[in-house]
Design a binder for these strands. Structure first.
Lengths: 193, 193
DNA sequence: GAAAAACGTTGACAAAAATCAATGCTTTTA
DNA sequence: TAAAAGCATTGATTTTTGTCAACGTTTTTC
């Protein structure tokens, strides 16, 4: 049930089986069907969500109802509205399933209990945050410093398998482009080769 | 010397004076004159840098030598090439002083020693990272979802005092715009009012 | 299994932004 | 303090990107 969760955890911080037990008690499994919401704008993000299986996306809406995808999450990723989770504030993100999902949820109270009882948990969270921050910073740097074509190439090297799982117009949205522009970028690149 | 550093620390995690002593021993003060480098591309980012006084920027260069500013840091901020620091890898960022600076440096070995000896330090780092991640995510979301004018307004509400300290063309760079475009955005906005 | 919806591509056009150049002003620097 | 460098703005132009529409294909859905 929580295989991947603990595999990832142990890759970073090795746990004893007692420690695993302690954590396991505080986790909640959840299945989500494709298109179902994990979180809707205005809800309070009560959980951190780890993806055992499947794929999700996070997005915001503007006043016209246009979607802007801010994140994807696949197996082994963590997703959630961190601001909402940390501050018990209404979420600005929507998160829904792109495929049927098996998720592992960690509630706010479970999170706090683990921070109290298990220093290794805090270490793991710190490492996760560090990685997430570095990735996001790279994405931002690419956004402001690279011309679109190179940004696309960097993106496709970073997430080589994403095209099999996510429609292209969502990737465009994630990159801050219109679907037509991304399509044209792709044909331009493949013509060059 | 380390006033602001400990003030910020104690705002998040309260320290005893013994704990402050322990940390203080491991900090290194550094002064930097305007235009001096804290870090150059290719160096290994050996320190996390806390700003007691002054202002710095981080930027990357493209092959033509154009600068793209990825971050500013003022009093109370932390700056550094996190990837380089964590992985002892060559930095991709350049960091230099926009004003004369008083800095507090924390070396990699000091960082590791504190993580070992002082759980509160890890908590503080975790909280810093959480905030930094949330801010960066907001910046990214604004970048892909807001039209330029609103992005500018959001930016100027987020950092209202920045215009007194940073030339406008650097703000343009930070926002991923040409200086001319930012100038025009500003006149458009002020004409509306 | 048929109808509907979603998707990616292409073309024509409009809008936005970058680039290039010139100007006047302010700040640095020698 | 004079010269140089840095800076913000504006205009003209080019390039890039978005928008709107149409089309054929694939995937969902009932």
């Amino acid at each position: 049930m929580y295989d991947l969760f603990f595999r990832k955890f142990n890759e970073r911080v090795a746990l004893t089986s007692e420690e695993e037990m302690l954590i396991k008690q505080l986790l909640t499994p959840k299945k989500l069907r494709k298109k179902q919401y994990l979180l809707q704008e205005g809800d309070t993000g009560k959980s951190i969500c780890f993806v055992e299986k499947g794929a999700l996306r996070a997005y915001v809406l503007d006043e016209k109802g246009n979607e802007y995808i801010t994140a994807f999450a696949f197996e082994g990723y963590t997703i959630g509205d961190l601001y909402s989770f940390m501050n018990a504030a209404p979420a600005t993100l929507n998160i829904d399933a792109l495929e049927d999902c098996e998720l592992v949820l960690l509630s706010k109270s479970a999170h706090e209990e683990l921070l109290q009882k298990l220093p290794k948990y805090e270490t793991y969270i710190r490492l996760l945050l560090t990685d997430a921050y570095i990735m996001l910073q790279r994405r931002m740097t690419n956004m402001i410093s690279l011309p679109i074509e190179e940004r696309y190439i960097a993106f496709s090297e970073m997430y080589p398998t994403i095209f099999q799982r996510v429609p292209q117009h969502m990737i465009a949205s994630f990159m801050g482009l219109s679907p037509e522009t991304l399509s044209r970028v792709r044909t331009r690149i493949s013509n060059k080769k």
